[in-house]
Design a protein around this nucleic acid. Structure first.
Lengths: 200, 200
DNA sequence: TGCGCAATTGACCGACCGGTCAACTTGTTG
DNA sequence: CAACAAGTTGACCGGTCGGTCAATTGCGCA
């Protein structure tokens, strides 16, 4: 029986990719950049991953899984009301993005949205991977809406569609924040989430 | 007195850049690609534009100006009610994107949003240029909301903030459509524009 | 006619891109 | 201990990247 723990280099490569792709972009980051940040040599890179694109896919899957477990499960798995859960997600996003903005000197936006905008038309595997992540994200929003609906917080409606609209609003807010390079933008747009939640 | 008409090559370079950046992305398109599409030689390229980034900026400014005159002015300058104008914009976007999707075999999304997501963090001149375009776009939305408000279609409110929220929703819908590679996504999300317009 | 300048051409450049590879080290297992 | 696989290393590769340039062409104007 061997250890199921992947090599440290493997993990550092994933983390470096997640970070650098977030701070810059997929195409703006070279394999050499990735290796330098992960303190790995190119040979190691290609020992673990067949291509740069494969690493990117592995990195976003890994990143989403971490976010899911570390953020989404805690927020949407607790006993709060549906609307309170939504508000908590918004607050956490805002808080973390603002923190990153002060630390990195720029508003970074959503790592998945960023990559989608950049690569969806150029690599179908990346596109499909992101589609699954978007679906999963919307799933959590929908669950919160259903919870809110059952508690009488909002009127009955198509929560799947509402979730998609909320997700679109958030992604658009990320983009605008990035182009304005200002965390305040997200903050001023996000309240409209509640509008959509409360819609018929 | 010399002709104010810029060389044909200059114009073809702008158009080729607009098109190719929309179909693929800024970084995925090389200067050679641009020249090939514009039927120009590299020397001509650098005769007219000091760098690839300068061409990109000129191309989006030109593209926005054309869109503004060809789409926004006609829609928002006519005598329709504010809400009717908004609806007409949505319909026209949907129609054109669907047409492009069938022609190109893929949902392309918003050329300005695409470029912003990709380049805002890497080139500040591109970022600022897009910021101005976003502002101008929101300006039209705001004007329509004000018109709707004055006609009693919607209740009084902060139309500048409403416009930003609507713009965010639309940009998010573009992104989701691109990642799903499905024009239907925009169609199902866009109605929420009216929700935001009618909000207090 | 001939001058002057914008436009055009294609050859050229160094840097960097993603990716390969054979040799070497290290840790595990019988 | 030997054997083997997993991981590591750095030199190397062809291709393409954005960008340069000197020479040439063609056009408006005196």
């Amino acid at each position: 029986m061997t250890t199921a723990i992947p090599s440290d280099t493997h993990g550092r490569l994933l983390q470096a990719t997640t970070r650098l792709m977030w701070e810059r972009s997929f195409q703006a980051v070279s394999v050499d950049d990735l290796c330098a940040r992960a303190e790995a040599k190119k040979g190691s890179f290609y020992h673990f991953f067949p291509s740069k694109i494969d690493l990117a896919i592995a990195a976003i899957e890994n990143s989403w899984e971490q976010t899911r477990r570390g953020v989404f499960e805690p927020i949407f798995g607790d006993g709060s009301s549906g609307l309170a859960q939504l508000q908590r997600l918004i607050d956490m996003i805002d808080e973390y993005q603002s923190y990153l903005a002060t630390e990195k000197g720029a508003y970074l936006g959503c790592p998945f949205g960023n990559l989608g905008q950049e690569m969806a038309r150029q690599d179908d595997r990346i596109r499909v991977t992101l589609q699954k992540i978007f679906d999963a994200h919307c799933g959590y929003l929908e669950a919160a809406l259903t919870r809110a609906e059952q508690a009488g917080e909002i009127q009955a409606g198509n929560n799947r569609e509402r979730a998609k609209k909320i997700f679109a609003l958030l992604e658009g807010a990320f983009l605008m924040g990035k182009v304005a390079n200002d965390p305040q933008v997200f903050r001023s747009i996000a309240p409209a989430v509640m509008l959509i939640a409360a819609s018929e």
